[in-house]
Nucleic acid binder design. Sequence first.
DNA 1: GTCTATAGCCTGATAGAC
DNA 2: GTCTATCAGGCTATAGAC
Lengths: 196, 196
Amino acid sequence: MPKQSKTYIKILEASLPLFAAFGYKGVAMRDIANTVGITAAALYNHFPNKESLYFKALEYAFDAQVAGLAETLANAKNPRQRLTVFIEFWVETFGSDVILRALLQREMTDGDEARLKLLVRHVFFPVYEEIEGFMHSLAERYDPLLLFFSMAGLVMYHFETAPLRRLLPDFKPEHDNHEKIVEHVTTLMIGALGLH
Amino acid sequence: MPKQSKTYIKILEASLPLFAAFGYKGVAMRDIANTVGITAAALYNHFPNKESLYFKALEYAFDAQVAGLAETLANAKNPRQRLTVFIEFWVETFGSDVILRALLQREMTDGDEARLKLLVRHVFFPVYEEIEGFMHSLAERYDPLLLFFSMAGLVMYHFETAPLRRLLPDFKPEHDNHEKIVEHVTTLMIGALGLH
DNA sequence: GTCTATAGCCTGATAGAC
DNA sequence: GTCTATCAGGCTATAGAC
């Protein structure tokens, strides 16, 4: 079972949009096989079972997604710049990659222990490690971990609720605009942290 | 097909924790039937199919959940009090009712159009209608709809991420405490809105 | 309203030829 | 590595007796 053959990668990449759209149980091995262009039985040459295919796909999707943050943060000199850079990173990462966000959301609602650990290992821990010191320095009156999830939640919830925001009064198309979201969240956090 | 028989209600109430925990596809008609104490076939005397059972269960869960907000808000005189009251309401509603929150989360990630409309009709619209004027009055520099979802997201994300927060450094058990969350979010919003 | 029995379909997974 | 063929089991939904 070669770990990085072309078909192996093709399977992972074909399965990701399916899992993101329909969830683990909503995707059949046949569906993945059809998308790749092989039969379901052939999948078992690359993965022992459905669950391990799913895990490898998740890792493949999340890895290297966080890599850019460290460099970007290094270029920001003062706290306010770092704040803006971090919010922009978070909006960019999960705003443009619909599949990544859907997978993350699904894993968070399913609450399976092993998958949560994968999420922490590949997404939240690396990011938090990068900005932990920053969170501590920002404002002494806020708990750093709560502050981190507050900022993450501010961004994520705008994306999570995007489909139903459209059905509410006061909706404007610009609410879906990434720059508007960055601006809104940044203004809010600058006020909350007293960084005027 | 009597609409409010005892069994009818028992089916709805038995199905809700199952759907919340395992999702629509993760629950079999047999599972619901077993919990109620009847057979799967008997369910079809009350609901034409699985999907309509699910819809009725969702409506049953969400209805009357929002009723308390209007009265609570009426007692709050100034903006700062209203802000606190609203955040407390949001934390109380979704913090204590694990099933309600799980259902809401699942529907938001699944993105099915008909179910999203149900969510808007039974949860977000009634709540937003109640505090729309308040949102407008709070701060002119913020878009009212974005502000609403920011406040909702600040609260919800702390619950959504609770299972993985435990796996991160700097975690303290008090992070799961409702009062702590209310305090954190309120302080943050007071700063952001300039309500000192 | 509930039961038993079952139809008809889809599921993950395996065996063995090529 | 991929195929065809196949399996056992689970699923929703229906038919008909009580």
